[in-house]
C-alpha cells in the first residue's frame, strides 16, 4: 500500500515498541552493578527522580492534550524510561571501554545528567508519536497532531526546568549509544541541536552567560557580551 504520513508514523511507533520490548522499566542487572560500583550508590536517587519526573510529565502531558487522552502521558513516559535505562547502560559500557574505569560515581550522582538523558529519551518517544514537522518555531505536527501541537521541542525543557545547554550535551552520546534510532529520530535530535545552538541557548535566562563569564574570569579575555547583543 502507498506510504502515508499516518502509516509511516504507525510503523515508526511499532518499531520503537519492538526495539524497547527487551528493555525493562527498572535498571537492568548490568546497570545495578554500575550503581553498586559507585563511591556513593545513586540507585535510590535515580528511582526517586524517575518517579517524581514521571508524575510531573504525565500531569503536564495530560493537561496539554486534554481530558480525552488521560493516561496517555504515563504510557509515553514508560517508553521513555525504558529508552533512558537502555541508553544509560550503553553509554556506561562505552565510557568504561574508553576510560578504563568502572566507578562513575560523579556522573551517576549528577541530577542534570539524568534529567537531560531522560528528557532526550522522551523527546525521541514524542517525536516518534508526534512527527517531526516545524510549527511556530518549534516542533510539532505529524500523526499525533493536532492534539499534541504544543508538545514539540522545547516543551520537555520547560516541563523538567532543564537548560537547553545541558540537554544539548547528551544528544551526540545518545545517538552514538543507540544505533537502532531511526533516521528520522536522528534528524529530529539534530534539529533540536540546531534550534538550541541558534536560539534557545542564547535566551536571556540561559546559564550559558554565567558559564562564559566564569570562564573569562579564570583567564584573560574579552568581556562577555550581554544577551541582547
Amino acid at each position: 500500500p502507498p506510504q502515508t504520513p499516518v502509516r509511516a508514523a504507525m510503523s515508526s511507533i511499532q518499531q520503537l515498541r519492538v526495539d524497547l520490548t527487551s528493555s525493562g522499566d527498572q535498571p537492568s542487572a548490568v546497570l545495578a552493578v554500575y550503581f553498586k560500583n559507585c563511591t556513593l550508590d545513586p540507585t535510590g536517587e535515580i528511582l526517586q527522580r524517575v518517579e517524581r519526573l514521571g508524575q510531573l510529565f504525565s500531569q503536564m502531558f495530560d493537561q496539554a492534550v486534554g481530558l480525552r487522552c488521560v493516561g496517555l502521558g504515563k504510557q509515553r513516559f514508560t517508553l521513555g524510561v525504558r529508552l533512558y535505562y537502555r541508553v544509560m547502560e550503553a553509554m556506561l559500557k562505552s565510557e568504561e571501554k574508553r576510560l578504563s574505569v568502572q566507578n562513575f560515581s560523579k556522573l551517576l550522582n549528577d541530577s542534570t545528567f539524568h534529567t537531560s538523558l531522560l528528557a532526550c529519551a522522551l523527546e525521541v518517544v514524542m517525536a516518534t508519536y508526534g512527527g517531526t514537522s516545524f510549527k511556530n518555531g518549534g516542533y510539532s505536527g505529524g500523526a499525533g497532531a493536532p492534539a499534541e501541537t504544543d508538545l514539540g521541542f522545547p516543551w520537555i525543557l520547560d516541563v523538567f526546568r532543564l537548560a537547553a545547554f545541558d540537554f544539548y550535551k547528551v544528544i551526540e552520546s545518545f545517538i552514538k549509544a543507540e544505533p537502532t534510532l531511526s533516521k528520522d529520530n536522528v534528524k529530529h535530535l539534530e534539529r533540536c541541536e540546531h534550534l538550541t545552538m541558534e536560539t534557545i541557548a542564547w535566551r536571556g535566562d540561559s546559564p550559558l552567560f554565567e558559564l562564559l563569564r566564569l570562564t573569562h574570569e579564570e583567564g584573560p579575555g574579552e568581556q562577555v557580551e550581554p544577551p541582547s547583543t
Binding site: S94, E95, L99, K106, D110, S173, I175, K183
Partner: peptide, 21 residues
C-alpha cells in the same frame, strides 16, 4: 544509515561533558 555529524573527539565523551573526567 544517517548523516549526523559526530563532533566529539576520541578523548571526549559524556563524562567530560558533565565534568566528571
Amino acid at each position: 544509515s544517517h548523516d549526523y555529524h559526530f563532533g566529539l573527539e576520541d578523548n571526549e565523551g559524556i563524562s567530560e561533558l558533565f565534568d566528571c573526567d
